[in-house]
């Protein structure tokens, strides 16, 4: 069960793209080991919110404290935070010019500055964890979508982050590959990792989430544990959204 130490504190966050407000007064606290699943209609600001957490987007107002470090304009802070926060993208974003093994070692070697041999053994360990030890010497383009996404997860894990962010990690996958990725994520959740997942995989959410978040129009509309979220959400729009998704 999650300890009561906050590791991510989002307070009154605003985000503007030019004149367009993508996030409005968003507040969310994530404790160590906690799993948060964010859902909501397309364009509701889910990606923007988690991209603020590792500052792929700069927030326009409010406060964001990650692992005790306030995110502001100091580059050192930003890089320190990014080392502790892994991110998995919808489009995998593997480095196509590097082999799987090199994809996994480039961060530890170039950013964490650990010796190459150590980085390689670490990479093999995490390839094992995502169940594709035999693909180490292939290039990303030679793998299936599901395998690529598992490599992407392993690449993040190789930095040994304290927090993992997932932005619709299964949305770009063929249906038959979704489960292999969700299984890896479930195992990761069981290992105690702090996770924020943007996903519409409600089965997965119900199984691992400690906290469900529903967003709409750049605002958090509902925060609840899954037991309540899935059975009697307070917000009618959240209910409508769930009905629509669960129909499929």
């Amino acid at each position: 069960m999650p300890e009561d130490t906050p590791i991510i504190e989002i307070r009154n966050l605003d985000k503007f793209f030019g004149a367009f407000q993508a996030l409005t007064d968003v507040s969310l606290t994530v404790h160590i080991g906690e799993k948060v699943v964010i859902c909501g209609p397309s364009g509701s600001g889910k990606s923007t919110l988690i991209r603020c957490v590792n500052r792929l987007e700069e927030h326009s107002g409010g406060h964001l404290i990650v692992d005790g470090i306030e995110l502001n304009d100091h580059t050192r802070n930003i890089r320190a935070v990014r080392m502790e926060v892994g991110m998995v993208f919808q489009q995998f974003n593997l480095f196509p010019h590097l082999t799987v093994l090199e994809n996994l070692t480039v961060g530890p070697i170039r950013v964490r500055k650990i010796p190459k041999a150590e980085a390689i053994s670490r990479a093999r360990k995490y390839l094992d964890r995502v169940h594709i030890p035999e693909q180490a010497d292939k290039y990303p383009a030679q793998l299936s979508g599901g395998q690529q996404q598992r490599v992407a997860i392993a690449r993040s894990l190789c930095m040994e982050p304290r927090i993992m962010l997932f932005d619709e990690p299964t949305s770009a996958l063929d249906p038959e590959m979704i489960n292999e990725v969700l299984d890896v994520m479930t195992e990761l959740a069981e290992s105690g990792m702090t996770m924020i997942c943007v996903t519409h995989e409600m089965g997965f959410a119900n199984k691992v989430a400690d906290k469900m978040v529903f967003m709409e129009d750049g605002k958090i509309v509902e925060i609840a544990p899954p037991s309540i979220f899935f059975t009697k959400p307070k917000n009618p729009r959240c209910q409508a959204f769930l009905d629509q998704i669960l129909e499929h």
Binding site: N54, L56, R82, F89, N93, V106, R155
Partner: peptide
């Protein structure tokens, strides 16, 4: 996405250019 992946690993601008 390449830039974003490099950045989220904590790479500096120089490292991102040089290796990715």
């Amino acid at each position: 996405g390449q830039q974003e992946a490099a950045r989220s690993l904590g790479m500096s601008w120089i490292a991102e250019m040089r290796y990715i």
